[in-house]
Design a protein around this nucleic acid. Sequence first.
DNA 1: GCTCATGCTCTCTTTTAGGTAAGTATAAAT
DNA 2: ATTTATACTTACCTAAAAGAGAGCATGAGC
Lengths: 136, 136
Amino acid sequence: MPNPSLRDELQALPPTDPAVDRLVEQIIGRVADKWTMLLIEILTETEVCRFKELSRACPGISQKMLTQTLRAMERDGLVTRKVYPVVPPKVEYRLTELGLGLSKAFCGVWLWAEANFEAIESARAAYARDNPPKPG
Amino acid sequence: MPNPSLRDELQALPPTDPAVDRLVEQIIGRVADKWTMLLIEILTETEVCRFKELSRACPGISQKMLTQTLRAMERDGLVTRKVYPVVPPKVEYRLTELGLGLSKAFCGVWLWAEANFEAIESARAAYARDNPPKPG
DNA sequence: GCTCATGCTCTCTTTTAGGTAAGTATAAAT
DNA sequence: ATTTATACTTACCTAAAAGAGAGCATGAGC
């Protein structure tokens, strides 16, 4: 067993009751989504952003998805939304402490992905080799 | 600024080239999904699991989703799939080193969720209070 | 010879996600 | 008077995801 510490660590956690478990799973389901992750990364790097900046920094996202994701993040207390009553509109987004905490927690996943994308690519190649796409 | 270290840390990372960035984003998009996360957690705790056990441990997942998610994980090199040629069928799943690495990386997010679910709940309550559901 | 068990696969249907495009408000610039 | 800019909101539509349920293979047990 090459890495026993993690398993031990997880099993040493307080015996979470099922209700909390379900809630935590739900939160992870909510938060572990592509755009949320990207926005958190952008906001971590840039600290404060207007809507258009986020849209530019997040290539491929539609206005609708951006609004939607930001709203969900605001609802969950991950970002604050500051509206200036000017014309044209100006709105600033920034991470809350909670959001920054998630960012920090997620940092490990980014680092993992950066460190291991080659391994994943070669695993995919191997899988494709061993499992021919369309067996006659 | 209460937590400058993370921003500094991120900005100190090697200037990743855009192609790698896109790949990493894609991997995160692929891997940051509810069922994958759950299965990784279960497999981290149980080490080796049959299909039915996973299905039982993962309440709410349909057979189809389970198969599908496991296949994707296998393709990405996160789990191994060992088939015993017996009747009725027996298949064992376990995490690879790569999968265990992701598990470890994701552990931070689980801990964050467990530590902060109350904050999220109250943020939601506050949001609901300040933004009435259906204004006349 | 019937049933059960497991780990799928296939089909069908419903649900959801997400894209596009248009509309809104209004002050400042042309 | 018209255009521009920003940050949305709404309506509509399509494609993808996910759920339900049946089918399959086959040896063991009754």
